[in-house]
């Protein structure tokens, strides 16, 4: 079994523990797009402090650990047009769908939430189709 799969499962367990803590201690769903999006469009209300604190932790811990763990590369494309298009699609899409990989996937599926399951199937299918078109039909990336 490749070591990266084990890191994947171990990292996944940490992600799950983070979501479990946020749910049971703070009473909130750990959805990255909702946490950021509610701050961006001003709908966070009284939860704004908690959401900001969450993001502070989310940014600070990788800032410290990425170098030592040798994980400080994203291998992202340098094509600014693609990045802007992709960012807009992710921003608008996750707001319309009210969730992303963490909210609908990590938190929604174990709850057997029909919307979480549906959203996850749709975004994985759309992502797969996009990679098929860009990488194999158009030969980009």
């Amino acid at each position: 079994m490749p070591i990266e799969w084990i890191y994947g499962a171990a990292g996944g367990l940490l992600i799950g523990c983070a979501a479990a803590m946020f749910l049971l201690v703070n009473g909130r769903i750990m959805g990255a797009s909702g946490i950021l999006g509610d701050l961006v469009d001003g709908t966070a209300g009284r939860a704004a402090g908690e959401k900001l604190a969450f993001i502070a932790g989310l940014v600070a811990v990788p800032a410290v650990l990425a170098g030592p763990l040798g994980r400080d590369v994203t291998h992202a494309t340098g094509d600014l047009a693609v990045l802007i298009l992709a960012g807009l699609a992710v921003g608008i899409g996750t707001r319309l769908a009210n969730g992303c990989t963490s909210g609908h996937g990590v938190c929604g599926i174990p709850r057997l939430a029909p919307r979480g399951v549906a959203a996850t199937l749709i975004y994985i299918a759309a992502g797969g189709a996009t990679v098929l078109v860009t990488r194999h039909l158009l030969g980009i990336g």
Partner: peptide, 11 residues
């Protein structure tokens, strides 16, 4: 929304 998100994710 999920379809749009998936497209951006794949890009």
């Amino acid at each position: 929304g999920s379809a749009l998100f998936g497209i951006g994710w794949g890009l």
